[in-house]
């Protein structure tokens, strides 16, 4: 499924955050959204996922306006993991992941226990959380907790997975663990992944495409190789950085100084 925006604009309390955004996310690809603080990355993700529906323009899923679709239908196709999610103190990992089956239940339609159980087991397995099923989410470490929430999103069996800074507050080991889980799901199930990432090196390493957001709109959209230039880093982030190729053959960067300082 292709998720795209047509002339998307978002204004929050008289502040124009996004204006005239046209961007398409191809099926089965991993796309990272990067940009400086306050550029509108999360705002874009919230509009894409219909967490915020007060926008101008359109968000289209395979050409159909998502606002005409109904939230429950949408949540079977598209799962979103926002930042800072919390659960009541007594909820276990198993219960949390089972909440991901909510889109498939309703007052009139009885749930399908077999399909639910299989989806939950699959989601726990893909996130390496099977052994944590009966633990409370509140007592997990940061990395485990994040994997539990990702498992909940996977239990929705979406075709598109949206993640808002999934590695924030994690140490580098747990960051890579989360990124690898996302990577494997994309590879094995052709699930489209769209994520806001803070760490540009992660974006370079784990994305097929990168969208750079700046000044209320899309500054650039392309492959990591096309995107990563000294000019882009200077213009978007105000940073001078060394770009080099790591042992995996991927171009990465190491920030050296702010642009003003470099000129002085």
């Amino acid at each position: 499924m292709v998720l795209e925006t047509k002339n998307l604009g978002v204004t929050i309390e008289n502040n124009e955050i996004l204006r005239g955004v046209n961007v398409a996310f191809s099926e089965g690809r991993r796309t990272s959204i990067i940009g400086p603080n306050g550029a509108g990355k999360s705002t874009l993700l919230k509009a894409l996922s219909s967490l915020n529906t007060r926008y101008d323009g359109q968000v289209l899923l395979d050409g159909a306006d998502v606002r005409a679709m109904g939230r429950q239908e949408l949540s079977k196709k598209l799962a979103i993991l926002p930042q800072g999610a919390t659960a009541p103190a007594d909820v276990t990992v198993g219960q949390l992941v089972d909440f991901g089956r909510f889109p498939y239940r309703s007052w009139l339609r009885p749930s399908d226990p077999k399909a639910d159980r299989e989806a939950v087991e699959w989601a726990l397995d893909r996130t390496h959380m099977t052994g944590y099923k009966d633990r409370r989410v509140a007592v997990l470490s940061g990395g485990e907790r994040q994997r539990a929430w990702i498992a909940m999103a996977l239990a929705q069996q979406p075709q598109i997975l949206l993640l808002d800074e999934p590695t924030t507050y994690l140490d580098i080991g747990h960051q890579l663990e989360v990124m690898n889980i996302v990577d494997e799901i994309n590879r094995d199930y052709k699930m489209t992944v769209i994520m806001v990432l803070h760490d540009i090196n992660h974006a370079l390493q784990y994305s097929d495409e990168i969208v750079v957001v700046k000044n209320h709109g899309i500054f650039a959209h392309g492959t990591p190789k096309e995107i990563l230039t000294v000019d882009m880093l200077g213009e978007v982030f105000g940073v001078k950085a060394d770009i080099f190729v790591n042992s995996q053959g991927i171009s990465v960067l190491s920030p050296v100084s702010l642009v003003e300082e470099a000129g002085a």
Partner: peptide, 17 residues
Amino acid sequence: LNILQLGDEIAKGLGLN
């Protein structure tokens, strides 16, 4: 109500009005 306890954003993401 169980879903609502997870917060507005998670609840919306799970398809709750």
